[in-house]
Design a protein around this nucleic acid. Sequence first.
DNA 1: TGCGCGGAAAATGTCAGACATTTAAATGTA
DNA 2: TACATTTAAATGTCTGACATTTTCCGCGCA
Lengths: 242, 242
Amino acid sequence: METAKTPKADLSAQIAQAIRDAIVEGRMITGERLPSEAELAEQFNVSRPTVREALKRLAAQSLIRTQRGAFGGAFVNRLSYEEAYGQQITTSTLLLSMNGVSFETACEARYALERACTPLAAARRTPDHLATMRAEIHRQGQPGLSDESFCASDVTFHRALVDAAGNPVLSYQLAGAVEAMQPLMNMITFTARSREAIVAFHTRIADAIEAGDSAAAETALEELAAYTLELGRGVMEARAAR
Amino acid sequence: METAKTPKADLSAQIAQAIRDAIVEGRMITGERLPSEAELAEQFNVSRPTVREALKRLAAQSLIRTQRGAFGGAFVNRLSYEEAYGQQITTSTLLLSMNGVSFETACEARYALERACTPLAAARRTPDHLATMRAEIHRQGQPGLSDESFCASDVTFHRALVDAAGNPVLSYQLAGAVEAMQPLMNMITFTARSREAIVAFHTRIADAIEAGDSAAAETALEELAAYTLELGRGVMEARAAR
DNA sequence: TGCGCGGAAAATGTCAGACATTTAAATGTA
DNA sequence: TACATTTAAATGTCTGACATTTTCCGCGCA
């Protein structure tokens, strides 16, 4: 039986894991400098290229950052929200595309998560968030907007909604779900009528958030979810019929 | 100003990005074999160690998997839910611990997300999920359970709740939030009375989910959130007073 | 004919040493 | 003091070699 520790892994993987553990368990703190590659090589009794491969693994997870030059080296990185967003988005996007996640499943997840934000958003939204939402609604009403631009605006609108909850952890968690949906959403061709309907939903949501009416916002969001699902189903059926 | 493309990055980072793009954009599909390291080195006009560093970066993100031996090589990996879970959890844990996310913020996010699952969980829960929840409730009532075991059981309970929604994307998104909270939860010392209270909440939740009563489950969850927050606040104050 | 066994080949994994480049501190000088 | 220069310490990259693993193919043998 394979244990979780993967004892037969490559040396570079083992070393990466050892350093990762040290960071996660707090034995190395943010900003602290790791020993130089040569020193690490000696400590672990391996060659420098092997150490370097381990460090690159960690760098790929934004666990460390490297700096060249004298007194440079590898430093334990403070994982910023930005970096975490980025990773979440790539991971989520790939997960969806590689596991054949259905439009329904992804859509359901996305709106369920967004719904979780509305009470907080209704309570805490700032004029800034509202302005962003209104601006995107306006853009979505413009004729001649490409489907992709429409989708991009949709994402911006929903991210503003999520950010309005004023909880960075929520924003981070949801970034993945919202952004990862985009490729699936891009498959939909939005007719003028469906755009109009979506804009109406968005307006209802923005109004409710502005009024601090969480229940109304949730209702509108649920209806939007149902409508989006219906649109998606239509596209899938048309696609299957070909 | 730095652009998103990071034009001044290391060669290994550039190569990793190029391959990553090829995968994300679908130019390479799951299971496909990458050229050998030597061939890649020639294509990109760099040395083999540089290529290897790039590949390790991708391996760290589970984008590729390597296999030794003849007809081995690097293959585009099918990102499994398991792997995605794992990455989400490490990233979330680090994000929380490194950015001094407060107990309040994390707690709020966690319960908000869980609340998003309850309507689906109430509609779809299987006997299996219910059995897990009941079993964990029973364990939580056992005297002599350490605080850590209590927390671990709590996590299992909540994961069962999330999984009951029957949406793998939701489960994936929430794994991070729930697990990442554990270190913060572990700081709490649970008195016999508070455990009793939590068990009561859990029982209410399980009952509501079993009965398909989403609203009752949400209410119980919200009260549990408020109670947990209160507990956490108490600990923080006691800690600050020292 | 069929089966197992062993070697060849192809690929990744690892090592050693060298050189290039970058960066900041230390040093020297007007 | 202020500025230019040197220098040292790191990472970044290259070359070439060897070790290891795994598959395939052909050979001998029953």
